[in-house]
Simulated assay, not measured.
Amino acid sequence: MANEPKFALIKKHITDQISAGIWKEDQRVPSENELAEQFSVSRMTARRALSELTDNGVLTRSQGLGTFVASLKSQSSMLEIKNIADEVKERNGEYSAEIIALEEIAAMAPIAIALGVDIDSKVYRSVIIHHENGLALQAEERFVAPALAPDYLVQDFTQITPHEYLSAVAPLTEAKHTIEAIMPNQDVCQWLGLYNEEPCLQMIRRTWSANGIVSFTRLISPGSKYRLGGHLTFKKRVR
């Protein structure tokens, strides 16, 4: 801890205050100047801590008003693929995973088409529930092309996420996804511990490596616990 960078200590202080419920949603947090004075650091160091927490969706900044605790819904970017374990850890949460299924199946037509393989050919299927602080955050049902990840079924996905593993053995070159609101079926309610039906956010994603389609994935999160966001910067047109 003694060798930990000062900006990291500031980030931990802020996330600890939020996790403990001391700083509430939409509450203003100390300014760069106030944090710089409190931690005896430069304003630039304090700014880095606030900026990184803002980028991670923990804080939100309003020009001229200050920096505030963001909505307590977990946030993921629509514009990039991030590892969910990293997202949780960036919020100073405790990540864990539960494996529901890890098996070889015969590809039905929709799965075969999505993976670009023959109908009834063998593909790998996993169902994993991602947790944050012990609560189900996201259900991931993934279908994988065995030719591009032959050792998929022998991985311990409580220690490494499928995204991490596939990124290592079949580096991502392209991804396409669609996002929609759905009402969960009985399986999804059981996976996510939903006792009262509530709308969920579903993302369907296909990923490619240089050698072809790697996976076809369905990611489902309770609408009350998850949201998607992004930030775009547009170049000014030269007149």
Score class of each variant (00 low, 15 high):
residue 1 M to K: 14
residue 1 M to I: 11
residue 5 P to F: 04
residue 5 P to S: 14
residue 6 K to T: 13
residue 7 F to N: 05
residue 9 L to G: 08
residue 10 I to D: 00
residue 12 K to W: 07
residue 13 H to G: 12
residue 14 I to H: 04
residue 17 Q to N: 13
residue 17 Q to W: 04
residue 19 S to G: 15
residue 19 S to D: 14
residue 25 E to H: 05
residue 29 V to F: 09
residue 30 P to Q: 02
residue 31 S to M: 04
residue 33 N to M: 12
residue 45 T to Q: 06
residue 46 A to T: 02
residue 48 R to M: 09
residue 57 G to F: 04
residue 58 V to S: 08
residue 58 V to E: 09
residue 59 L to N: 03
residue 59 L to E: 07
residue 60 T to V: 12
residue 60 T to M: 14
residue 61 R to D: 10
residue 63 Q to P: 14
residue 66 G to P: 15
residue 67 T to C: 02
residue 68 F to A: 02
residue 75 Q to F: 00
residue 75 Q to H: 07
residue 76 S to T: 01
residue 79 L to M: 14
residue 83 N to F: 05
residue 90 E to P: 06
residue 92 N to K: 05
residue 97 A to L: 06
residue 101 A to M: 07
residue 102 L to P: 08
residue 105 I to K: 14
residue 105 I to P: 07
residue 107 A to K: 11
residue 107 A to I: 05
residue 108 M to S: 15
residue 111 I to D: 03
residue 112 A to Q: 10
residue 115 L to D: 08
residue 118 D to I: 14
residue 121 S to Y: 15
residue 123 V to T: 00
residue 124 Y to R: 03
residue 125 R to D: 01
residue 129 I to R: 02
residue 131 H to W: 08
residue 132 E to P: 08
residue 132 E to D: 11
residue 134 G to C: 03
residue 134 G to A: 06
residue 137 L to N: 01
residue 137 L to K: 04
residue 140 E to N: 12
residue 141 E to R: 13
residue 143 F to K: 02
residue 144 V to M: 02
residue 144 V to P: 03
residue 144 V to G: 01
residue 145 A to K: 13
residue 150 P to R: 06
residue 150 P to G: 10
residue 150 P to Q: 09
residue 155 Q to D: 01
residue 156 D to V: 12
residue 160 I to A: 06
residue 162 P to W: 02
residue 167 S to H: 13
residue 167 S to W: 09
residue 168 A to E: 15
residue 170 A to Q: 01
residue 172 L to H: 12
residue 172 L to A: 06
residue 172 L to M: 13
residue 175 A to W: 15
residue 175 A to C: 06
residue 180 E to D: 05
residue 184 P to M: 10
residue 184 P to Y: 01
residue 189 C to M: 14
residue 190 Q to N: 13
residue 192 L to C: 06
residue 193 G to Y: 03
residue 196 N to E: 14
residue 207 T to G: 00
residue 210 A to Y: 12
residue 213 I to A: 10
residue 217 T to S: 11
residue 218 R to C: 06
residue 220 I to E: 03
residue 220 I to K: 00
residue 222 P to D: 09
residue 223 G to P: 03
residue 223 G to H: 04
residue 229 G to E: 11
residue 229 G to C: 03
residue 229 G to S: 11
residue 230 G to T: 08
residue 232 L to E: 11
residue 233 T to F: 15
residue 235 K to A: 15
residue 236 K to M: 13
residue 236 K to G: 15
residue 237 R to L: 13
